[in-house]
Amino acid sequence: MRRGPEVLVNGVELLADLSGALYWPARRTLVVADLHLEKGSAFAVRGQLLPPYDSAATLQALAETIARYEPERVICLGDSFHDDGAAERLASADGAALRRLTAAHDWIWIAGNHDPVPPAAWGGRVETRVTLGALTFRHQAGGEHAPGEVSGHYHPRASVRTRARRITGRCFVSDGRRLVLPAFGAYTGGLDVLDPVIAGLFPRGFSVHLLGRESVYSFASTALADR
């Protein structure tokens, strides 16, 4: 697998990984956003019996990414659990897998709007935001002046028109000042980056790092296909 592109945010060198995770080599820190664990069973509670394997799929992908980078610290940028009841619905095997991961790392749960109080049962510590060096990690981007802000929440996706056709995928979004991660969860959809809700965060333009099948590709916002 080719290495993801290097992304410079507030002077810090980061790697945009094909899995949708962000790696900070200097601090051996891996960042993921919007796991939405137990989203499937949240639908089941309301009577729509989606396949219950989404948490297993998400945790497996996360474990594989962690195994590749061997980070010391893992930061989950909020909405890690789809709702309040997610903790008790998580299957015991999935819970055990999660506990193994949290136990082996300095694990930080950032609180999100879906999980304002992330469950304590699986280890790790809970923060509303964390600042490390030049970067600040939080769930949702906020304010206009936000140098070094790294967040999730928006599930960004982007489309590119190629000579053969239009290609759409999850992506990182950054203007060098702040960065928004794609959603990592198996059942998480997305919002086009050209939507004013996302584009508005980057008034001076931005670039995206689009997750392809084999690698991550970088484009300026001006090169993207309008929805």
Partner: peptide, 22 residues
């Protein structure tokens, strides 16, 4: 291909923002 063709645009289209340390 697109990325390579557009790499110029990707860098020149953006103001490169230097570190602003808090």
């Amino acid at each position: 291909e697109n990325a390579r063709a557009l790499i110029e645009e990707a860098t020149s289209g953006l103001e490169v923002i230097q570190a602003e340390l808090p």
